[in-house]
């Protein structure tokens, strides 16, 4: 059983980008069973930019599932952005989940924007000024929702979708000083609280593609400036009872 997952994040749509992704997206039904969008779909989070996302990523012939990113929050139009996306058939996850069935295999996707705070040993704490406590409480609340959304799914394969990074591995290339603004170990802990097969995120434009959580979950940074193509495709093989160990390999498109 193989589920084919296409993913990209940080597409920052506006009118000037309309049509750039579409030729590659038209090929999606032949290449993937689902498209996941890892946040920062827009530049400023306006309703008009969301319409550009809907035009570019709607009606693709495969389910499209998204989380929002920090850019999508900038203009405080989140409910309107979500409505425009959902009117175009794009499912937006915010601490929630969705199970998609393909050829008898149930793919469970749990998604949340995530937030910052840093990584174990070098992270912010819920202590001191109200603003500092609010910062970490925000991350903790989102991570708690993500963990619950992952654990409660009845499915064969679990995928976590966030905008912020759950591990520092995929931030390699970014300045160390800004790691706390790029992700949080609390997201990784949530992902490790369920038998997750793959975690996808964006946000870190200068980061790198591959990493692993402390619990062994494969993590991929699919930010558009990182993958440098319209989307990446992952062939996720459903886990088989009695088999241990994980292998990843790159193959030419069209083969498996």
């Amino acid at each position: 059983m193989v589920i084919r997952i296409a993913a990209v994040g940080d597409v920052h749509m506006d009118r000037d980008v309309l049509g750039r992704f579409r030729p590659a997206l038209e090929e999606l039904p032949d290449r993937a069973d689902v498209l996941l969008l890892a946040g920062d779909l827009t530049r400023h989070g306006t309703e008009s930019e969301a319409r550009c996302v809907a035009t570019e990523f709607g009606n693709l012939g495969v389910p499209v599932v998204a989380v929002l990113g920090n850019h999508d929050y900038h203009c405080d139009e989140v409910p309107r952005v979500i409505r425009v996306l959902e009117d175009a058939g794009i499912v937006v996850l915010e601490g929630t989940n969705l199970v998609v069935e393909r050829d008898g295999t149930r793919l469970g996707i749990a998604g949340a924007k995530g937030f910052g705070g840093g990584f174990a040993g070098r992270c912010a704490s819920e202590f001191g000024e109200p603003e500092m406590k609010a910062f970490i409480r925000t991350t903790q609340a989102i991570a708690d929702q993500l963990g619950e959304a992952l654990r409660e799914m009845d499915c064969d394969v679990r995928v976590a979708l966030t905008h912020y990074a759950p591990v520092p591995d995929t931030l390699a290339g970014e300045p160390l000083e800004i790691y706390p603004f790029l992700g949080s170990y609390l997201l990784g802990q949530a992902i490790d609280s369920a038998p997750t097969e793959l975690a996808l995120h964006g946000h870190a434009h200068a980061g790198s593609e591959r990493g692993t959580t402390p619990g062994g979950v494969r993590v991929r940074n699919v930010a558009h400036p990182v993958i440098k193509q319209a989307y990446s495709v992952f062939h996720l093989h459903a886990p088989q009872a009695g088999r241990s160990g994980k292998v990843s390999a790159i193959t030419r498109s069209g083969s498996s």
Partner: peptide, 14 residues
Amino acid sequence: LIRTQAPSEVEELR
């Protein structure tokens, strides 16, 4: 400019 071509490879995750 970030390229937007379709991917030429897939990653197999077993």
